[in-house]
Design a protein around this nucleic acid. Structure first.
Lengths: 233, 233
DNA sequence: ACAAAAGTGTTGGAGATACACCCATGA
DNA sequence: TCATGGGTGTATCTCCAACACTTTTGT
């Protein structure tokens, strides 16, 4: 970049994934590069600067791909974070001093979020981020910058989109049991749900397709498998 | 600004007001400066650039105040618009060439929206905008830049906040009739509502206070007046 | 046979919808 | 007295919450 400027814009991506082995909701985090031998690197949301004439939605996909190898996700912008102090914390300045050309510059960031079916994607950590990994939503550490705040707001949006757009189905494997679906909803909304009422509720959706197939390899009554076919229009 | 940069950030404000004389929902627009004798100036949302170290929420209030004289509004950020082409249309380039130091620069804008009780505020058009005026929501012309799109998205947010936060009451005069409230809801949601059902619905709210006062100066049965007192907490 | 999770219905209350007439006022 | 908008109730339906036992499989 040949420009001297006072402002940059970045993207931070909050990617939710559902681990159907552990039945747990996870968030994709990267580990920042070390800034010294003595200080442990921080975890952070995958994020980077937007290029000079790059559209935001395209930038979000590029950044995520570069840092994690994930491509083709639907990423949705949910908020612009621009507090002038958001990068001024000492823990973050150390990193910025070491890895950014102009660490003092103001950076505003756009929060994007997405959800994925874990089985559909493989993580390919880039050379930039030392590693990308799934972290349980209940075990999120203190993150770099204002990333905890960004994550919290993304979770709010996941809840809203689950209510309005059945987006939670996109997190499940293509074939899933109703128990998995219920479990996922309990995690997203952080409360227990009644099994019979939950089933009544979701069975009203005609996008929910019962398959001629049952769970295998469990030593209890095997569950009916379902898939979800989003209605055309 | 002493900096040469490739990116600026601006705020555009969508302010909704309810005109209780006309019973109509309005949006606050400004008229851009003329760019020539032959071309009529465009209407636009009140908006301007964010200053170097200025927080967005503060910038939104400042910009709105400078252009319209309105102060103390609660402005809510709802989306960042950053399409690299968003200022490239000829109609807009003409204006930018004339009134901006660097008309080629990429500008992203943050959409903010707010609602006000018209009786509480007086418009004071600044010297920058030739005038600020209320325009009926059903009579919005083609606006400068991508402002029609921004307005549309603000309206979506108004709907959501009306459902979730009773925010529509903030648009009404302090003393209002149930017919005015119903009328406002019909405008916001663009559909007709049943009078009795609507009244049942809103009378459940204990924030709605019936006053010992009736409408005056109407030549039909005068309506009961109400006020709305937002619950503490 | 047992352990484990799957699967299944009913009831009561709350909220939404549909619908038509009388009332109070100023002109 | 008339024109105008203000104000009111009931019946039906749908949606939500609470609640406990039987079924199917693997070990």
């Amino acid at each position: 970049m040949l420009y001297s400027n006072y402002l940059d814009i970045s993207i931070d991506c909050v990617v939710f994934g559902f681990d159907d082995n552990e039945n747990s909701l996870k968030v994709l985090l990267i580990e920042q590069e070390r800034i010294s031998d003595t200080i442990d690197p921080q975890k952070a949301l995958p994020g980077d600067l937007v290029l000079k004439e790059e559209d935001f939605d395209i930038a979000a996909n590029r950044v995520l791909q570069e840092l994690t190898g994930l491509t083709g996700l639907f990423l949705k912008q949910f908020y612009a974070f621009g507090n002038p102090q958001r990068l001024k914390h000492e823990k973050d300045q150390n990193w910025l001093q070491k890895y950014r050309i102009n660490p003092e510059i103001r950076i505003i960031t756009l929060g994007y979020y997405s959800i994925i079916r874990m089985e559909d994607y493989k993580l390919i950590p880039s050379s930039f981020a030392s590693k990308a990994e799934w972290v349980d939503i209940d075990e999120i550490p203190n993150l770099a910058f204002d990333h905890n705040e960004i994550l919290e707001m993304a979770l709010e949006n996941l809840r809203i989109d689950t209510i309005n757009n059945n987006i939670s189905f996109e997190l499940l494997p293509k074939k899933f049991t109703l128990a998995q679906l219920q479990n996922l909803h309990e995690i997203i909304f952080d409360k227990e749900l009644d099994k019979r009422n939950f089933r009544k509720f979701i069975k009203k959706m005609d996008e929910l397709i019962p398959l001629n197939e049952k769970q295998k390899g469990v030593y209890h009554k095997p569950a009916q498998l379902y898939s979800y076919e989003r209605n055309s229009k």
